[in-house]
């Protein structure tokens, strides 16, 4: 395979629409250390960004499933998201042919979340969940709300639901705080209760807990 194929910018861009898997049982090409950001990483010399152990392991995992009898590499396969085979091409491919091959798979499966969008949205939802665990409702709401409003989710119902679920978790955590504030007020700590509620109202945007917090605050202030 021409060594210029995988580093091609056009091909790299096309692979953002799929999950890419490189399988090779050989390690004779060796590995090298490179600097990525602040860290040194060991990478395969044949394919940047992957450890040789990983492409050997992948080969062991899938060769029995996809390769029967004698094979001549390179072979490119497209699979459905469940791993079943859609189509394959034997032999070397040019950048143009490989991009067209990827495009045919995307057409059959439908347009999913691109790699970049996936990591942005998933990162925001993970951040929201972590912030809930730390009691940081401001960060949790902001991250979950940002995920929900991400333009890429417009056509992805499952991810819209995940974002809505994350906001629901923020709301539940905030409602617990409203209860804490009401308990504090009943115990005579009106100032503490007021501070908790005011903070929640400022942090949680348009969640339903905000209306409940406003009612609780009005009650404490005797309005």
């Amino acid at each position: 395979m021409d060594r210029s194929v995988y580093p091609s910018k056009d091909l790299i861009k096309a692979t953002h629409a799929v999950v890419a898997v490189y399988a090779n049982k050989n390690t004779d090409h060796g590995s090298s250390e490179v600097v990525r950001g602040e860290e040194k990483v060991t990478t395969c010399k044949a394919q940047f960004g992957l450890a040789c152990e990983a492409h050997v392991k992948v080969m062991q995992e899938i060769e029995g499933y996809f390769l029967k009898g004698q094979i001549r590499t390179p072979i490119h396969l497209l699979c459905k998201p469940d791993g079943s085979e859609l189509s394959r091409k034997d032999g070397k491919l040019s950048v143009k042919d490989l991009i067209a091959f990827i495009g045919s798979g995307v057409k059959q499966v439908g347009k999913g979340l691109s790699r970049d969008d996936y990591f942005v949205v998933k990162g925001k939802l993970d951040q929201a969940n972590a912030a809930i665990g730390q009691g940081d409702l401001k960060t949790a709401f902001a991250a979950a709300d940002e995920a929900r409003k991400h333009p890429s989710l417009k056509d992805h119902k499952a991810w819209q639901e995940k974002a809505e679920q994350a906001l629901q978790y923020v709301n539940e955590a905030a409602m617990e705080r409203v209860n804490q504030a009401q308990a504090a007020a009943e115990a005579g700590d009106a100032e503490g209760a007021r501070q908790l509620l005011q903070q929640l109202i400022a942090d949680c945007g348009n969640l339903s807990c905000v209306a409940t917090a406003k009612e609780a605050l009005a009650k404490i202030e005797g309005k």
């Binding site: 390769l67 072979i75 490119h76 439908g110 999913g112 979340l113 790699r115």
Partner: peptide, 16 residues
């Protein structure tokens, strides 16, 4: 990841 993103998997087999 393919299931979560609902995207195809591109597998490429090579030998040195």
């Amino acid at each position: 990841q393919a299931r979560e993103r609902n995207v195809p998997i591109l597998v490429t087999f090579h030998e040195d």
